[in-house]
Design a binder for these strands. Sequence first.
DNA 1: GTCTATAAATCGATAGAC
DNA 2: GTCTATCGATTTATAGAC
Lengths: 239, 239
Amino acid sequence: MLSFRYTVLMNAPKTARERARAELTAEILAAARRQLAESGSALLSLRSVARELGMASSAVYRYFASRDDLLTALIVQAYTEIGEAAENADLPGAAPEERWLAVWRAVREWSLAHRHEYALIFGTPVPGYVAPHITVEVAGRMPLTLARICADAKGAGSLNPPSGPVCPPEAIEPAMLQMLAGESFEPDEVARLILAWNRLVGIIGYELHGHLQNVTADDALFFDHTARSEGADLGLPFR
Amino acid sequence: MLSFRYTVLMNAPKTARERARAELTAEILAAARRQLAESGSALLSLRSVARELGMASSAVYRYFASRDDLLTALIVQAYTEIGEAAENADLPGAAPEERWLAVWRAVREWSLAHRHEYALIFGTPVPGYVAPHITVEVAGRMPLTLARICADAKGAGSLNPPSGPVCPPEAIEPAMLQMLAGESFEPDEVARLILAWNRLVGIIGYELHGHLQNVTADDALFFDHTARSEGADLGLPFR
DNA sequence: GTCTATAAATCGATAGAC
DNA sequence: GTCTATCGATTTATAGAC
């Protein structure tokens, strides 16, 4: 399913030719990434990337067959980075509330430092671009990090969702329940997880897009409160 | 602060000349709106609007000084429509839970039917475009509709937020507290309101952007649950 | 595999005739 | 107030020499 471009980034190239190709591919991707970070996906073009690297625009087509392919690589990279940011911030062994807050903060900080990358994966879809299926696996790393924290808390008996409306089980995709089956979550707990993911992404989007201006006075403080509040809704022992 | 274009849409034109101008302005705006609804803001251009109307591109500049001005008019229109959708769906006199759910559903339905308009006001900002201050007033209509429901519930003594982390008052902008001062909300209640607005926008964004695919099985059902759950978090008597 | 050159479009904005 | 014409720039993508 993965095309050659991606395998070239993941497996060690053998011949000198392959090594050179891998290096240039990485260089193109890095330049594209710089331009994305600076101006956003709408202003990203193969030509401007070629210009920055001092090569002819046509040469880039040997490495990325189209602008969409370049975008896909950037999307995979963004998902990977936010997933790694979440995983690296986690503190296995610490109290679930600490882990929860640490991961939320890490995701926010990555997003604030990479607003265009955030927009690429969570914002309005790039017009004309359709995401290939490659992205689904890597897109799950960040959410799964949060799910793991809840699973650990549940295993320790410290996950106690507050009372409130219970999500009807038919609303959740069976495949989703299956994916989290190892943690033996109830459907309602999965629904709360989904809402927590959505909250994390959504509150950051609000902040990035200026919808909190003249609304909140201290964005970081409000974010921390949001994280705690959402954690409490899931049943984590925030007080 | 309002420029001529907007006043021309709001006040009744007097001379025949003014009437003709108002009609053509409305026609241009309608064509722009059609193109926005079809292809999104990224592919919206003054030239294509002019093409659709069969006029020279330069003629359009007599009505909208720049592409940004046209975008601003569309943004004001979108905020107005979603605000009206919310207000019209409200059922003053009915139980707060019914009103709450009705308004949430109306906002979702408007958004699903107008995804590019939703993206224009809640999605990734259009690159290079900076929103003028005209938009703040009209942007408040939808949120205020929800606030009003809570205020009425509070007045009737049926607003009882569940226990959980309390938002530190310093996190909220004083101007925001001031704006809702008439309802005598506590800072923590204002924080819950902000999160409810964010949830409504965010869960719709998730649905629109495909982040619920393979996650939820029945989007409408999950949305209703979300509305109830968020209403309960605010203290509305959802069971 | 990189280059030049080019095709075939798009766009915002302006000048100036009428 | 609408038109033609134009400036000056952008883009994706391809053809073909080397």
